[in-house]
Design a protein around this nucleic acid. Sequence first.
DNA 1: ATAGTATATCGCAAATGTACGATTAATATT
DNA 2: AATATTAATCGTACATTTGCGATATACTAT
Lengths: 110, 110
Amino acid sequence: MKRTGSNFKYSKETEELARFSKALGHPARIIILKHLSNQSCCYTGELLDVLPLAQSTISQHLKELKDAGLIDGEVSPPKIKYCIHTENWMKAQKLFDTLFKEDFKKIKCC
Amino acid sequence: MKRTGSNFKYSKETEELARFSKALGHPARIIILKHLSNQSCCYTGELLDVLPLAQSTISQHLKELKDAGLIDGEVSPPKIKYCIHTENWMKAQKLFDTLFKEDFKKIKCC
DNA sequence: ATAGTATATCGCAAATGTACGATTAATATT
DNA sequence: AATATTAATCGTACATTTGCGATATACTAT
């Protein structure tokens, strides 16, 4: 993002929604999230059986989800338990909800 | 996406949700969508006043939103009216809703 | 016909994303 | 201590995204 000199700033909410969306913007990561929830939350590496990807690639996707704040990893040697980050997940839910609700107020026109 | 030989396929829903998410994955595009809705739907190029981006860049973002199916453009010379693509928008709403609901069934664990 | 307006598209540069295999790190088990 | 297991990280290759200015297109108005 360059944004040419101008010190324009997107609102925090907008940035956040974009960040969450971006994290959801790859099918593998959606699968991961669904899997995390189905398996009653915390979980990890049998993602290798679920996704057609190399271990390192999956690890990378997990990192992105973590960076976006959607999941959380707890070390529980030798494995690592990943869970959905409840607080942020709720925040994301709310942000999406708002976006869609807002937009629906005035839809249907042209 | 390479996915190594294996002819794995993500489900249509997963692909779709990822596609919508990706389109929402940039603050400028979220602004555009919000703007489209606020201005009672159809609209166009005063996005130049709303966003700190070059006209060509905005045009590109619009194209991406259109490719993702979230908006629709109707020529109305000399301008072009953009609207939210109601049908797909509702579909997106439903997909996000399902994702969050699903995940909430079993949340709160670790 | 000419000029003007609104947008799209092209060509480019830089940054980011996706994927892999190989390596490293941390811990558990023997 | 040596080995095995799990997962992160590194280095690399290639694709995609983001942004810009310049140019092309399409239509209006003069």
